[in-house]
């Protein structure tokens, strides 16, 4: 697929004009993952982990960077900060069956509402389609209305089920980023 951003090194422009490049997360990305974690507000941490983690311990960092081939897929949205690469956000999924993967996205709070989440989800959607996945599953906080709006903006179709204090969200991979509607990121002139 020509549009598969995991293999597409061409940077995209965020709404603030900064260039963002998507690439797979690698084993030596620990420091960048930790730095991203530190740029998260308490609410973003909670929404991502459903727990107010104070820090990422080594074991967690390892789990987030040492991916099981064919099972774990993770994309980082990278920015260039004076020659230093930083993560503005990371999106990942893990296959749980042939057709289903659990997905999680997180964008550093300074980068919210700039289109980074959309880029990441779009990248992951491309990979998932290539892999023949049909559903993205995620468990979210009912109060995470921000994510519901985000999903809606990305074309979400699927089911939402409220269960025991959490929302189980199952997204039809096909529904994401339908071809026709206007996509503000694509519309943004590339530098």
């Amino acid at each position: 697929m020509a549009s598969d951003p995991a293999h597409d090194p061409e940077p995209q422009a965020a709404r603030n004009g900064v260039r963002v490049r998507l690439r797979p997360v690698g084993e030596d990305d620990g420091p960048r993952v930790v730095e991203l974690f530190e740029s998260l507000s308490p609410d973003s941490v909670f929404n991502r982990f459903l727990s107010p983690l104070a820090r990422l311990d080594e074991e967690r960092v390892r789990a987030l960077t040492h991916l099981q081939p064919g099972i774990d897929y993770a994309l980082a949205a990278c920015i260039d900060d004076g020659g230093l690469e930083r993560f503005a956000g990371v999106g990942r999924f893990r296959r749980v069956t042939a057709e289903v993967a659990e997905i999680a996205l997180v964008v550093g709070d300074p980068w919210h509402r700039l289109g980074v989440g959309r880029m990441l989800l779009k990248g992951l959607t491309g990979i998932a389609r290539d892999l023949g996945l049909r559903w993205f599953d995620s468990t979210i906080e009912p109060a995470n209305v921000r994510l519901l709006r985000f999903a809606e903006a990305c074309g979400f179709k699927g089911t939402l089920k409220y269960q025991n204090g959490l929302l189980n969200m199952r997204t039809d991979v096909e529904s994401l980023f339908p071809a026709n509607p206007r996509d503000p990121i694509e519309d943004h002139p590339r530098p």
């Binding site: 991502r48 982990f49 459903l50 727990s51 967690r60 789990a63 987030l64 990942r92 999924f93 893990r94 749980v96 659990e102 997905i103 999680a104 468990t139 025991n164 204090g165 959490l166």
Partner: peptide
């Protein structure tokens, strides 16, 4: 603690 496959803590399982 019980967690989902991508590291979400499942408090409900404990409850």
């Amino acid at each position: 603690l019980p967690k989902s496959t991508i590291g979400k803590v499942l408090r409900r399982v404990l409850r």
